[in-house]
């Protein structure tokens, strides 16, 4: 059983319009593993998640979810195996937070289904763990960006997937909420789930992930344990920055990015 990887990208390539967004990405996610994915804006991270979740279809290569090609699975079956926490959430109707979390039960519900007792229990449990049970009866239209992000994270956990894809899950969260959410992802993996976490916060992601992959212009430039990947050479290749890497007290490297030299003609300051 453990021989089957949770998620495999096998030479995935995709062109959107004239742009080659993914140029043959190969990555593997083992059961119980957390893989962090980082890279410059436009490197193809979100597109890669869209291919995995069936929103986009690879033009070359394939994605396998628990051994089966993702595009061959019915949407419902894929949604039982794999859940997504998206980057941004906007809902134009006054759904309550609890109702949105309950929607995570859809792939498990009977087609006509009302909300069954088990669905409600799972939804409450997910909200409880993320500390948002008190928001259950608040309208999504009234919540802050960070609160909405936790609601959709709870929805993904209520979905009870084997594989979890998180796209910048901590972007709108304060430091404490970031740590709590990532700790929850870590517990999910400890229980046998697998997670792919896209994050710009390398140092924080490195603290929970087993491996880190860097994506640049649609290609994987480095993948491995965080301490091996967070090296000046790979950071330059992925982000085009110069950074010093220091040994951190907990074994995870600390990054000290070098700023470009100051420019006098950038505007601001006194009006002549």
């Amino acid at each position: 059983m453990s021989a089957v990887p949770a998620l495999v990208f096998d030479d995935v390539a995709l062109r959107l319009g004239v742009r080659e967004v993914l140029r043959g990405v190969s990555l593997e996610l083992a059961p119980g593993e957390i893989l962090a994915l980082a890279g410059a804006n436009g490197a193809g991270k979100t597109t890669l998640l869209r291919v995995a979740s069936g929103v986009l279809r690879a033009q070359r290569g394939e994605v396998r979810v628990l051994g089966d090609p993702g595009h061959a699975l019915a949407p419902r079956e894929l949604a039982r195996r794999l859940a997504v926490v998206p980057q941004d959430v906007s809902i134009p109707f006054p759904f309550r937070a609890g109702e949105v979390v309950l929607m995570g039960r859809s792939p498990h519900a009977r087609r006509f289904g009302l909300d069954a007792g088990e669905d409600v229990a799972r939804a409450r449990e997910a909200m409880q763990r993320l500390g948002i049970l008190a928001l259950a009866d608040r309208s999504m239209l009234e919540l802050s960006g960070g609160e909405r992000q936790l609601v959709v994270a709870a929805r993904a956990f209520a979905q009870q997937p084997k594989v979890l894809l998180l796209d910048e899950p901590t972007a709108h969260l304060d430091l404490r909420r970031r740590i709590e959410l990532l700790a929850h992802v870590r517990d999910f993996a400890a229980a046998g789930g697998s997670a792919l976490v896209v994050s710009h916060d390398l140092e924080l992601a490195a603290r929970v992930c087993d491996r880190l992959a860097l994506l640049a212009e649609g290609e994987v430039v480095a993948v491995g344990p965080p301490a091996e990947v967070m090296q000046p050479r790979w950071l330059r290749e992925a982000f085009g920055i110069d950074a010093r890497v220091l040994a951190g007290p907990d074994g995870v490297p600390l990054l000290v990015p070098q700023f470009p030299p100051a420019r006098a003609d950038a505007g601001g300051g006194e009006i002549a």
């Binding site: 069936g54 929103v55 949407p75 949604a79 039982r80 949105v100 929607m103 859809s106």
Partner: peptide, 24 residues
């Protein structure tokens, strides 16, 4: 009426609906 659940998910957006199992 039987598509009520799918309508809820479509109201979240096509991408979210697909990811929650709707044949959009």
């Amino acid at each position: 009426w039987p598509a009520g659940r799918a309508l809820n998910l479509l109201a979240l957006g096509e991408e979210a609906a697909r990811q929650l199992g709707v044949d959009v």
